[in-house]
Simulated scan of single mutants.
Amino acid sequence: MIDTTLYRWLRPLLGQRGFASRVPERLRPRGTSSRVSRLAARYDADVDAAIQRLWPKARVYHDREFAQDRADFLLVVRGRGVMVETKVKSDPGLFRGSTLPPLLDRLQRDGRRLVVLLNQGDPTPARELVAAKLGDKARIVVWSGPEHDAELRAAVEELIRIECRHP
């Protein structure tokens, strides 16, 4: 019979089995913890490909760590930066934007522009939230593939035309 206390003591030396279940969700690497996280990782890759396709000369910076107050991408087009946040819903219902306030607060202080890309759903409640915090410096676009590239391009180009960086 194995002494469980000895096993718990040796477990860090033998390997990290079960490690992911003990680590809080906010500290786990992206794309490994659930079905939605895997969908989010795939969606981020599709968004990255779309950005490269629509703005081949633009610089794109990726935030590989999960943080609620930082956007997933920084897109720099013609010297102007636009933050891009991706949101994945597993159902086509309403998107209320309940996870956006930390990011919106930070961007409101920094005076940055933001495009929120949603894979599906109705973003009307979230649009109201974003408009209240960032006004005309933010857009929410439902983007699920190349067929929605025109909406993505229009949203980013509108934000690039905004002259003032700070309120």
Rank of each mutant, 00 (worst) to 15 (best):
Met1Phe: 07
Ile2Phe: 10
Asp3Phe: 03
Thr4Leu: 03
Thr5Leu: 03
Leu6Pro: 03
Trp9Val: 01
Arg11Glu: 14
Leu14Lys: 11
Gly15Ala: 08
Gln16Thr: 12
Arg17Phe: 01
Gly18Met: 07
Phe19Arg: 15
Ala20Lys: 10
Arg22Asp: 09
Val23Gln: 14
Val23Phe: 10
Val23Lys: 14
Leu27Asn: 09
Leu27Glu: 15
Pro29Ser: 07
Pro29Ile: 13
Arg30Asp: 01
Arg30His: 02
Arg30Phe: 00
Thr32Cys: 10
Thr32Val: 15
Ser34Pro: 05
Ser34Val: 04
Arg35Lys: 09
Arg35Asn: 06
Arg35Tyr: 11
Val36Tyr: 00
Ser37Arg: 14
Arg38His: 10
Arg38Lys: 13
Ala40Ser: 14
Ala41Tyr: 04
Ala41Cys: 04
Arg42Ala: 15
Tyr43His: 12
Tyr43Cys: 07
Asp44Gly: 09
Asp46Trp: 02
Asp46Cys: 00
Asp48Tyr: 02
Ala50Arg: 08
Ala50Glu: 07
Ala50Trp: 04
Arg53Glu: 11
Leu54Arg: 09
Trp55Gln: 05
Arg59Lys: 13
Val60Lys: 13
Tyr61Asn: 05
Tyr61Thr: 06
His62Gln: 14
His62Lys: 12
His62Thr: 12
Glu65Cys: 01
Phe66Gly: 09
Gln68His: 09
Arg70Thr: 08
Ala71Pro: 10
Asp72Thr: 02
Phe73Ala: 03
Val77Gly: 04
Arg78Thr: 13
Arg80Asp: 00
Gly81Asp: 08
Val82Glu: 06
Val84Lys: 04
Lys87Val: 09
Lys87Pro: 00
Lys89Tyr: 06
Lys89Asn: 03
Ser90Arg: 14
Ser90Phe: 01
Asp91Leu: 12
Leu94Val: 15
Phe95Lys: 14
Phe95Val: 14
Pro101Ile: 02
Pro101Arg: 04
Leu103Asn: 11
Arg106Trp: 02
Arg106Ser: 12
Leu107Ile: 10
Arg109Ile: 00
Gly111Met: 01
Arg112Ala: 14
Arg112Trp: 08
Arg113Thr: 04
Arg113Trp: 09
Leu114Asn: 03
Leu118Arg: 09
Asn119Leu: 08
Asn119Trp: 07
Gln120Cys: 07
Gln120Arg: 15
Gln120Asn: 01
Gly121Cys: 10
Asp122Thr: 05
Asp122Cys: 01
Pro123Tyr: 03
Thr124Arg: 12
Pro125Glu: 11
Ala126Met: 08
Arg127Glu: 15
Arg127Gly: 02
Leu129Trp: 05
Val130Phe: 06
Ala131His: 13
Ala131Arg: 15
Leu134Glu: 11
Gly135Glu: 00
Gly135Trp: 02
Arg139Glu: 15
Ile140Pro: 13
Ser144Val: 02
Ser144Asp: 15
Gly145Lys: 10
Pro146Arg: 14
Glu147Cys: 00
His148Tyr: 11
Asp149Lys: 11
Asp149His: 09
Ala150Val: 05
Ala150Trp: 05
Glu151Ala: 15
Leu152Glu: 04
Arg153His: 08
Val156Cys: 00
Val156Pro: 05
Leu159Asp: 10
Leu159Trp: 10
Leu159Val: 04
Ile162Leu: 15
Ile162Asn: 10
Glu163Ala: 13
Glu163Leu: 10
Arg165Asp: 15
His166Phe: 06
